[in-house]
Design a protein around this nucleic acid. Structure first.
Lengths: 238, 238
DNA sequence: GAGTGGTCTAGACCACAAT
DNA sequence: TTGTGGTCTAGACCACTCC
């Protein structure tokens, strides 16, 4: 028998999605345009309203269209205005490049929040915090200094971890269900002790990532991650 | 009449999603666990299978669970391993902060690609390119130097644009259907002419975003965007 | 009130996996 | 063969918008 090239017909809701996307791509339907109603599509495609509804609902979830109950379905604003950068766990990132990762623990202590730290953690002054300072190496070259404070109530076992094996990030993800992250990326000059740990000059800029994580409506952890500007970049594709 | 605090009951599919999410958050259902079948949920919640299907399908789209036809629905790997940074159009970003944006065009020229540029654009040496240099101001403070090369074949009308009104980014999005973006974020010291345009010292680090866009399987544009490290950060929430 | 989307039902048939 | 998810139907009722 001949090798047949059987194509399964795409699902009806997929065909409708493609139809709408094609109209938008071709420019026939432009930003803000009202597109046909669900009822109209049921006739055009000979399908039930639930099927049309699924197609349009998924396009709305993808922000291709937006829908206003009682009014209709409209073409959404062009996307691609934003580029997304993915910031990964440093250990995974290094391993993904085929290199070896090693963490060097420089400091692990328990202390009490001063006023500024209490404000950052949205708690009261004197609350127990853990503080760790770890230098991450990629094939024996220092690539990140991770300076981290952790709310002791959220991750009480923090100090019992072996941070040469798992990063604090990995531990915290298991210990405290993450509910949110705030981050900021900056370019700054390193203070002397950071320059020393990264084995760079104080005249070389650093790329820093500040990251605050939330768990159970509390601030779980505040971290500052320093990277040598010459060797480290955030990069990606969309 | 008393001010009533009427709560509309959440939709059934939402209640089911919440139920599953709560079980996962509490740790009752762990990564890789098989969760109840659609049929089981119809009985638990007293709803039809379509309603359960929608709830689980949406959770699968969000990568909370994964589904294998014939086998069942399983809890997916923990997320939040990655943090996403959104890089917006500079003009939109400034306006969103409630400030005024102004673009100052310093250079707009047509030239021919040298060998290095030809390699970057994946074309032949001598191909026509446009080159623009724009300084973006936020409330009269320079916030970005945008140095951009554009493939003339992809956007032939580039030089006819008024870049004090719309950013090159906005124009290119309309002129050339975007198919992909590569980017890189770095921390570097500014060369003298950039420091001058940003009105900063040569000892102040810059945050730079390099961005290459693709259209129709060709490189449409290569841009380097310089920002003063002291005033500009990438930030966001997830 | 007419038109639109938001949700839901109670079935149905199919494809795929495990046995 | 049985159980699972993937899709679809032909209705239904509701909430909201606009006239």
């Amino acid at each position: 028998m001949q090798a047949t090239d059987e194509q399964k017909a795409p699902a009806a809701f997929q065909r409708i999605k493609e139809h709408v996307l094609a109209r938008i791509r071709s420019g026939e339907w432009k930003e803000g345009d009202l597109i046909p109603t669900e009822e109209a599509f049921t006739k055009t495609f000979g399908v039930s309203r639930m099927t049309v509804n699924r197609a349009l609902r998924e396009l709305a979830a993808d922000q291709v269209v937006f829908r206003i109950q009682g009014s209709g379905t409209f073409v959404a604003q062009q996307k691609f205005q934003a580029t997304l950068v993915e910031i990964k766990n440093i250990a995974d990132e290094i391993k993904a490049r085929g290199h070896s990762h090693r963490g060097e623990l420089h400091l692990l202590e328990r202390l009490h929040a001063d006023e500024q730290q209490a404000a950052e953690f949205d708690t009261k002054s004197g609350a127990a915090l853990f503080h760790s300072l770890i230098v991450h190496f990629e094939d024996e070259a220092p690539i990140q200094v991770e300076d981290r404070w952790v709310h002791a109530e959220v991750a009480p076992d923090y100090m019992a971890q072996d941070f040469t094996r798992a990063t604090p990030n990995e531990y915290l993800m298991k210990a405290a269900p993450l509910q949110g992250v705030q981050y900021r990326i900056e370019a700054v000059m390193p203070p002397p002790h950071v320059a020393g740990m990264l084995q760079i000059s104080e005249q070389e800029p650093c790329l820093i990532l500040r990251r605050k994580t939330f768990s159970g409506n509390r601030v779980a952890s505040v971290a500052v991650m320093w990277h040598p500007g010459r060797k480290y970049q955030f990069s990606g594709t969309i």
